Computed example of a mutant assay.
Amino acid sequence: MGVDQEQRQIRCLVAKVGLDGHDRGAHVISRAFRDAGFEVIYSGLHRAPEEIVQATVQEDVDVLGISILSGAHDTLVPEIIEGLEEYGAFEDTLVLVGGIIPDEDETELLELGVARVFGPGASMDEMIEYVRENAPERE
């Protein structure tokens, strides 16, 4: 059986932005995504928003997963979205945020264009299924 559009490999960037040094969750998600058949790029720790934007554009990823636990999501995530918009990459990238995000901040992130926020206790299966169902179609 040949590989069709539905079976193409989804490219994901798992990104740690800002001064947040806690990356265990990002590693767990990266491994789960790889096991699900996604191609995963991990940014490493302490990346500036512009570095995340550059990596998203240069690696031509379908999905950007931002892992942030520092509480700076309300400033760093909008900077990333602005950068993606400047490069014309926002429309073609599914942006997800993972971390401890207060409900009112989650609403603001969703209004900015974040597709989904996954908090503590979100199941890996739920995240994988969400990515499979919502990753942008590529030609």
Rank of each mutant, 00 (worst) to 15 (best):
A115W: 06
V17A: 09
E106C: 15
E85S: 10
V114H: 00
N134R: 11
T93M: 08
D4A: 03
E133W: 00
R11N: 08
I100V: 15
E133C: 03
V131C: 04
F38V: 09
V28L: 15
D92N: 15
E133A: 14
L112A: 08
I66H: 07
M1H: 10
T107K: 12
L109H: 09
Y87D: 14
V14R: 02
E6G: 00
V40M: 06
F90Y: 06
L69V: 06
G99F: 04
D35R: 14
S70P: 02
R31T: 15
D20G: 05
I10M: 02
L19E: 14
A89H: 14
A89T: 14
L69T: 13
E82W: 00
P78A: 02
D23H: 03
P136Q: 10
Y42R: 02
G99L: 04
E6H: 13
G21C: 01
M124T: 14
H73Q: 15
G18N: 01
G99K: 02
S70E: 00
H46A: 01
E82Y: 07
Q54A: 15
Y87M: 01
G2H: 14
H22L: 02
D60A: 13
R24G: 05
Q58S: 14
D74F: 13
L45T: 03
R47Q: 15
M127T: 09
F118E: 03
Y87W: 07
L64P: 02
T107Q: 15
A48H: 15
L64I: 11
G21E: 01
V114Y: 04
C12L: 08
E39S: 08
R47C: 14
L64C: 07
M124C: 06
G88C: 09
L19H: 10
I100N: 14
A115I: 09
V40W: 01
E50F: 11
H27K: 13
Y87S: 14
A15P: 02
L94T: 10
D105K: 15
V131T: 08
L109M: 15
G25W: 00
R8K: 12
E139P: 15
L109G: 11
M127H: 01
A55D: 13
E133L: 12
I68Q: 08
Y42L: 06
D23P: 04
K16Q: 11
F118C: 09
I101T: 03
E85W: 12
G121H: 12
S123A: 03
E139S: 12
F38W: 00
D125F: 05
V95F: 07
G121C: 11
F33H: 08
H73N: 04
R8W: 05
R132C: 03
G2K: 13
I128N: 03
L112M: 13
E108I: 05
E59Y: 05
Y87L: 07
E79L: 14
M124G: 04
E139W: 06
V63F: 04
S70L: 02
E51H: 12
V28F: 03
T56W: 07
E91Y: 06
E85H: 11
H73P: 11
K16F: 00
Q5E: 11
A36L: 09
G71R: 13
M124A: 10
V14N: 00
A32I: 07
E126I: 02
Y130R: 06
T75N: 10
P136R: 03
A72E: 12
L110C: 06
G88R: 01
V53R: 07
E111N: 12
T56G: 01
I100S: 10
S67N: 11
C12R: 07
